[in-house]
Simulated scan of single mutants.
Amino acid sequence: MKKPIRKAVLPVAGLGTRFLPATKAVPKEMMTVVDRPILQYIVDEAREAGVEHFIFVTGRNKGVIEDHFDSSYELEDTLKRRGKDGAYAALMADLPPAGATSFTRQQAPLGLGHAVWCARDIVGDEPFAVLLPDMVTKPGGGGGRCLAQCVEAYNEFGGNILALEEVPPEETHQYGVVAIGADHGRACEITGMVEKPKAGKAPSNLIISGRYILQPEIFQILELVDKGAGGEVQLTDGMIQLARKQKFHGVRFEGTTYDCGSKLGFLAANIAFALSRQDLAAGLKEELRKLGFVAG
C-alpha cells in the first residue's frame, strides 16, 4: 500500500541576486504576484494536493517567511475591531494549522540537493514532495495545479514522480532533461536524466519543471553524492542514482508555469494572475490598452 504524500519540502534559502536591490532586505519568495507572496502560491498548491506539513529550508535573513506563516495578533485584532471581516477571513484562511510548519537552516549555499537533504530528519521515512518556490503554476484544461497532477500520477504508479514541461530544443541546455520510455499519455516512464546537457545532446525536450515526489531513500544518496555542476550537490544527480533502484514517472503538466526567479517570468505572472481576477481584469486591460498593448 502506497503511503500518502503528507509532507512537502520548500527550499527557500536562495539569495535572489537576480532581483537586487529589491531582495537586499526582502526574500525573493516574499515578493508579491498581485497581492500574494510568491511563496503563498506555492503553499496553496501544496495544500490543494493534500500536503499537511510544510518544511521550509531557509537561510540567513529569511525570518519574515516564518513570520508570514505565523499568527499576527496585533494585525488580527485590528482587523476585527475595525470590522474588516473579509480581510480577516482571508488572513486566517492562509494561516497553516498549529504544528503544520517546520523550519530548518541550510547553512551554506551547496545546491538544491543539499537543501533537500537538510530536511531529512523532519521528513523521516515516508515519500514527500519538493516544490521549487520560484516556479508558480497556473492550472489549465480544468485540472488541478501541478503538484495535484503529480499526486494523481503517484496514486496510480507509485515510486517517484517528476513534473515535466516541453521547451524548444535549443533551450534544453539550461535545464534538467529526461529520456522517456513507455508513454501513458499525460504520464510516461522516465528512463534517464541529465542535468544541463550540452547543446544538441539532450535526450528529449522534456524538462524537469520544479515539482517532485520522491521516496525517502533519496536522502542516503544525497548524503554521499559528489558535487556536480557549479560545485553544488545537484538533486538531479541524486535522482539518477535512485533511478537505478526505483521507478520514476513523469507527468506532463497541463497548465502554465511562471519562473518568478526571472524578471520576465515574474512580470508575466503578475499580468496573468491579475487578468484572471474579476476585480482587476477590466481595469488592467484598460491600462494595457492605454500603453498600446491591447487593441481597441
Rank of each mutant, 00 (worst) to 15 (best):
P169T: 07
I213H: 01
I213G: 00
P127R: 03
G63R: 11
T104G: 09
E29A: 13
Q278D: 14
T78L: 15
D44C: 04
V194D: 06
G111M: 06
A49C: 04
S102V: 00
A98V: 13
G192D: 10
P197C: 01
K62F: 00
L214D: 08
E170Y: 04
V64N: 08
P197K: 02
C118W: 03
K285F: 13
E74A: 15
P21T: 08
A93S: 09
C118T: 13
R211K: 11
C260P: 12
V294D: 12
G255P: 13
G261A: 09
L224R: 15
E195A: 02
T23D: 15
E254T: 15
E156P: 04
L235I: 02
A229G: 02
P21N: 11
E126D: 09
E195W: 07
E254W: 08
L222H: 03
E254G: 12
K84T: 06
R145W: 08
P97K: 11
K198F: 00
D134H: 05
E166C: 07
R36I: 06
A119E: 00
D183F: 06
Y212K: 05
A87Y: 12
P4G: 06
Y175T: 01
F253P: 11
K201R: 09
F253K: 08
A119T: 02
G210K: 02
I190T: 07
E152N: 04
S102R: 00
C150S: 03
I207S: 01
A282D: 13
A93T: 04
E29Y: 12
R47K: 06
P127D: 05
A243M: 15
G238E: 05
A229T: 02
R36W: 13
K247L: 12
E171K: 05
H53Y: 03
E232T: 07
I207L: 05
I38W: 04
K227P: 01
I190K: 07
L79G: 12
D183A: 12
H53S: 00
D94V: 09
I190C: 06
E165K: 08
R289V: 06
G14L: 11
A269L: 04
K3C: 07
Y258F: 14
E152M: 04
G292A: 11
A98L: 12
I180V: 15
P127V: 11
P97N: 09
P109T: 05
G250E: 10
P96G: 03
G210C: 07
Y175S: 01
E232M: 08
T17H: 13
A179H: 10
D134A: 03
P27L: 09
V251I: 15
T101N: 07
G185S: 14
I65A: 01
G255W: 09
G255V: 13
Q106P: 11
V251G: 11
T172V: 06
Y175I: 01
I218L: 03
R6F: 08
P27Y: 08
E48T: 04
E171A: 05
T137M: 10
F69R: 05
V34G: 14
Y212T: 03
V194F: 07
S102Y: 01
P27W: 08
V43N: 01
